[in-house]
Structures are given as C-alpha cells and as structure tokens.
Design a protein around this nucleic acid. Structure first.
Lengths: 269, 269
DNA sequence: TTGCTCCTCACGTCACGTGAGGTGGC
DNA sequence: TTGCTCCTCACGTCACGTGAGGTGGC
C-alpha cells in the first residue's frame, strides 16, 4: 500500500490531481483511514493510473475516461469511443489549421505592406508588370461595392490567392454611380468557379504611381499620373488597374491615411 | 445609440457575452443609464466589436484582445503579438497531430487484432511469408525485457512502422536467463539509426501457428509446432519468429488470455 | 521543537452560458 | 394585465493548481 505522496511519485500524477480523481470517482484509493483521512493505494491501482494518464495524454475528457474505465470489458466499445474521440480531435485540427492559415495571411499582408511602404517613392514611374493569372468578378455600380467582389473570390478561391487584390477599371472616364469594374485576386491555379472568371491577364510596360491616403483622394493621384502620360504622349491600354498594397486589414480597418494603392496604366509600345 | 439587445443582433455577440466584455473592460458601453443600469452602445462600438470577434475567432485570448485594443496604434506591436499567437497555435497543432497519429495507431491495432482473431485457425499451417524491411534491436537477457527494444525502435522510427512487432529468436534451445533475440518492427523505409539495425529479412515457406493466451504459455504451442515439423521431417532455418498479432495495447494491457502470437518457423525447401 | 506528510476548504483559471428573481416601460 | 427587454447575482463548465490553516507521527 502506498501513501498518496508515494503513489504520486510512482504514477507521475500530482497529489492534487490524485485527490481530484478521487473526488470525481475516476481513481479511488484502495482504502481511506477514517481517523486521519489518509488515502492509500495498492499496486493494482498503478495500472489504472497508467491507463488514465494514457487517455488524458490523448486529451480524452475525464468523464470519457471514467466511462471507459467502468465498462472496459468490451474492447469494441472502447474502439467506438476512440473513433468518436478521433473525430473530435480531427475537428479541432481543422479549426486550428484554418486559424493558422488566416494568421499567416494576416502576417504576410502586414509584412508586405511594410515593404511596400519602404519601397514607395510616391512618384510616377515607368515599369514592366508581369502577366498573371487572376480570378475576377465583374461588377457594375459604385466602387465602394468592390469589397463584395473581393470577398466572393476570397470565399471560393481563398487558398489559391497569391498576391494583392486589384481592380480592373473598364470605364475610360470616372463614373460615380454606374462604374464598370472587376474585383480580382491573383491566384496560383487556373481553377474555375461559377460567377468568377479565372484567366491570365497580360503584362507589359506601364506607368505606375503609389497613392497614399484614403480612396476618396485617389483623384489627385489620377490627375498626376494622367498629366505624366499626356506629357510623354503615351497611349493607354484599357483597363486601368488599382493594386491595393495596403488597405483595411482583416482585423483592423487601420488608418485610411496610411492606405497604399498603386495605380497602373499599361501603355502601348 | 443601441440597447444591448439591438447591439447584440448587430454584432452577433450574445447579450451575456456583451455584459461579460463590459465587466472585463474589453468592450465598454458608450454609456450606462444609472437609473436602470441599461447599457447603450453607439455606432463606433460596432467596429470595436468586429475587431474583438475577429480576434476571438483566431482564438486570441481575451486579455490579449484587451491588450491589442489598448495600444493598437503601433501596428508593429500587433504583428509581434500575432506572430507569438501563431506560434502558440502551431504548438497546439503539433500536439493534436501527435494525438491523432497515436489514435490512428491504436485504432488500427485494434482493428487488425480483430481481423487476426477472425482469421486465426489455431492450427499448425504452412504458408509463405514475404521478405520485409525491419528495424531491430539485438538483445541478450530475458524475453520479458524485449519491450524495451520495441519501444527503442518505436521512439526512433515510430512514423515508419507499418506492421506488427516481431521477435527474432537466435537461440536454438529455450533459454530463460541469457536468451539471444532481436526486437523488430517492420518499417517502410531503410533509414538508419544508431543502435538499431535496419535491413531486409528474407521471406519463404514457413510453418506457422497462432497461439492464443499469455506469453508464459507459449511453450505449449512451440511443442505443437515442433511436433509437426518433426513429423514432416522439415529442416528449420534460424532465427525463429514470433509475431505479436495482439498483445498489450497502448492504453489497456488487455486480457492476456486473448493475446494472439504467431510463431513462424522458416523451413528449407 | 522542527520538518515532513497528509488533510479539508475555498478560491482561481478561461470565456462565457444558465437560470433565478426582479424591474421598468409600452 | 401581459409580454418584452433589461438588470444583478450566483452558480456551472473543465481539469486541475494555489494557498491557507490545521493535524498527526517521527
């Protein structure tokens, strides 16, 4: 017979835990001294304790452990139980994996936003953009509605997104009410999904300007870039693009004054 | 201004949760009527509630949420925080993945044990065993010590195990004290590990008998199989094998009367 | 006497949910 | 008056851990 302290050392369960298991009826001492209240455990209880530890290490809840210990005669019951438990674990795993994916996305976004901030000159520049595969939803209405398009793409093709959201603007003049645009996400795969157009868009030489500030103030930057185009005498290829380098985050809307948006206008060579 | 019920519908947070968040100081109502104690929230709080929900959905603990809300000015701090949180999630994921792996192993073992039980005839049979890759630890001593060898292999090559543990017995006579044997696990890869011999062992025709009962009673089955071998005039190829079809499980030791052990003796053709 | 082991009882953790009992205004 | 919304307070969940205060035997 072992005292609770001895039994604790043997089994690796803390004294507090052993008392708790007694209280819960999961692991009862072999006998209790009714004078002192001391708990005593015999050698056979060591095996029970081992079983409990094994099950707890598998994160089987205590009442499950109790149940298994009660009718562990039928090994089939245990198997069914373990399969159910496996399902529960699997469920948690899926949930946590989804969380990790979201966190990765958020962290990456933040990092990229920083890099974009460091690299931005806020001057009109000429550069070459690569051709890329995008998934887009064509919309008509107000620009402020574009979020719906982005989230539609995100829901369907979330796991394939590998770049910043961009807007293709098909109007050649600014329209408030009935604008014609496409909310796009660069994706790694040419998967198809209903209501979403997945395709490759061309690259090429373009005039680019990074705009800092709220979207309502984009007009100023458009003016700057168009002045430049006119000065150079370039001819533009529609559609114009807005790339959202840094916008409202998934957690914080953030400060609109810090939003970064790159306007890209492809030019004919 | 919204009452708590209205605000609950808007934000998707339960009334109880909103009261709890108030108590915790995470999301305070804009004002509280000191006559009735009614809580009122203004529209700006909706955004805060959204942030809290987003963070809670990422399983950020409430005190973390509170901390982020307090000094969310510096986005860098949030990034560091999110990275730490990602680490925590990753940790949990690893833990749960390990649990799932264990559960799978246990469930598979149980299933295989059932199949073995159904197929066993408990008669001496002749059959052909395949050549297989095993990882083994050669030992000298008592057979009851073999568990150490198995667990040594399990610890080092656990993820590559793809079959039932088996013992190779190099003695040609039964030895109690100073037996010479090798605890082996079939593995899917010829990886090497110190102190463990990973190699391919031969297959071939063999005489086989499934023994049901505790290991101490294996002698009876050895007698049966050796009688058969003698009757047939076969010549044996050393080492003899014991395959543990059903033994003490990872959770329960189980009933030794139900243990199944296959004795295999390869014969020369 | 000191040190050690054991005891019980109450409270804390975590993020809420449940339920009782009561109020105030339409 | 009934129904609705709101309130507070206390307790439950889960598997223990912490700490206070006390006991009994060497």
């Amino acid at each position: 017979m072992y005292s609770i302290g001895e039994f604790s050392k043997i089994t690796g369960l803390s004294v507090k835990t052993l008392r708790f298991y007694h209280e819960q009826g999961v692991l009862k001492p072999t006998c209790v001294d009714d004078q002192t209240g001391y708990r005593y455990y015999d050698a056979a209880k060591i095996e029970t304790a081992r079983v409990i530890r094994a099950l707890r290490e598998l994160e089987v809840p205590l009442n499950g452990v109790a149940e298994i210990l009660k009718n562990h005669e039928d090994e089939g019951d245990v198997l069914v139980f373990l399969e159910r438990h496996r399902q529960a674990i699997e469920q948690k795993l899926r949930q946590l994996t989804a969380i990790r994916t979201s966190l990765d996305r958020i962290i990456l976004q933040q990092r990229e936003a920083r890099v974009a901030m460091q690299n931005a000159t806020f001057q009109v520049q000429e550069k070459v953009v690569d051709s890329q595969v995008i998934a887009g939803v064509r919309m008509k209405g107000r620009y402020s509605e574009c979020g719906k398009g982005f989230s539609q793409v995100g829901r369907r093709l979330g796991r394939y997104i590998n770049g910043k959201p961009l807007l293709l603007i098909y109007d050649t003049e600014y329209k408030e009410e009935d604008a014609d645009f496409e909310a796009c996400m660069p994706v790694s795969r040419e998967t198809s999904a209903e209501g979403i157009s997945v395709r490759r868009i061309e690259g090429g030489r373009c005039v680019s300007l990074v705009h800092q500030g709220p979207y309502e103030e984009l007009g100023r930057s458009y003016q700057k870039i168009l002045d430049y185009v006119k000065r150079k005498g370039y001819r533009l290829r529609s559609p114009c693009r807005e790339v959202y380098l840094k916008g409202p985050g998934m957690i914080f809307k953030g400060n609109p004054k810090k939003y970064l948006t790159e306007i890209q206008m492809l030019i004919e060579e």
